[in-house]
């Protein structure tokens, strides 16, 4: 491996688990000459390349776009989902944020609703199930009116976009002491409740999604605000307040219950 910048030596304590329902443990792995220009995932790639050649099993971790938008990567690094940098996914975290001789503890998202598949890879299909219960506008292709038929104030469009920026990575769940998915759910409920296109179904949506969230085994919100702090896209907990309002309103709507 050639590199131009500076290098560091680090010690990883990384969660190894062969499969779902099997007991896992932290394994200590020494990594020498890690370029500080590497991303965290490139550091793991480099370790894995070495392990493969030595006939050892690589560390499994989910990843895809490696530019912070697909939401596929994520691990708890030194106790913080996606690591210590604010507003950043794990793939965008660079090794220059670490020091020589650092000990770095790497664990998977931990939540009852996210069973571990292997090592750092978890099953987040519960988040898809919640969206399937109501995270959409019920319309079919072909019938839409002209895109400019309904003006939407810039302020509302921007707020909806703030909420829509959620990448569904699950860091909010991993950060929450209750493993609640409220930030994730509220982001979608907010986006669609704010926009005129989503308003006709707002009550039913809030009702369905909150119940789906409970059914999937996510915990409740106790205002810890850890989710907001961990969110790589800085989704605000204001969305949770909005979701609660939408949910309470839904409770009063006789056609929903």
């Amino acid at each position: 491996m050639t590199t131009q910048g500076k290098t560091i030596n680090i010690t990883l304590k990384v969660w190894r688990q062969k499969g779902p329902g099997v007991k896992g443990k932290l394994e200590t792995i020494e990594a020498k000459n890690i370029s500080t220009d590497m991303s965290f995932l490139e550091m793991l790639d480099t370790i894995n390349e070495g392990r493969i050649v030595q006939g050892k099993e690589p560390i499994e971790f989910d990843n895809d776009c490696r530019e912070g938008i697909c939401g596929m990567c994520g691990a708890v690094v030194n106790g913080i989902p996606h690591g210590p940098e604010k507003a950043m996914t794990l793939c965008q975290l660079h090794m220059r944020k670490f020091k020589n001789e650092d000990i770095i503890v790497v664990e998977p998202w931990r939540a009852r609703a996210f069973p571990i598949i292997k090592d750092l890879v978890v099953d987040r299909s519960a988040l898809d199930k919640i969206i399937q219960s109501g995270g959409f506008v019920s319309m079919v292709a072909g019938g839409a009116p002209d895109a400019n038929a309904i003006p939407i104030s810039q302020n509302i469009a921007e707020k909806a976009m703030d909420a829509a920026a959620c990448i569904g990575c699950g860091a909010c769940v991993a950060a929450c002491p209750n493993a609640s998915a409220m930030l994730f759910v509220s982001a979608k409920i907010s986006q669609l409740a704010l926009l005129p296109q989503g308003k006709p179904e707002a009550a039913q949506r809030a009702w369905n999604m909150v119940h789906a969230m409970d059914d999937c085994g996510f915990g409740n919100c106790t205002n810890e605000k850890e989710c907001e702090a961990a969110c790589p896209k800085e989704i605000s907990i204001v969305n949770i307040a909005r979701m609660n309002r939408e949910f309470i309103k839904a409770g009063f709507a006789s056609h929903v219950m």
Binding site: A147, I150, I152, A160, Q197
Partner: peptide, 21 residues
């Protein structure tokens, strides 16, 4: 048609001050 479809789905495209796309 695509733009119409996406707006109807709730895609938050950028808008100008008057609320148009």
């Amino acid at each position: 048609n695509i733009i119409d479809q996406c707006v109807a789905q709730g895609v938050p495209f950028a808008r100008d001050y008057g609320g148009l796309l």
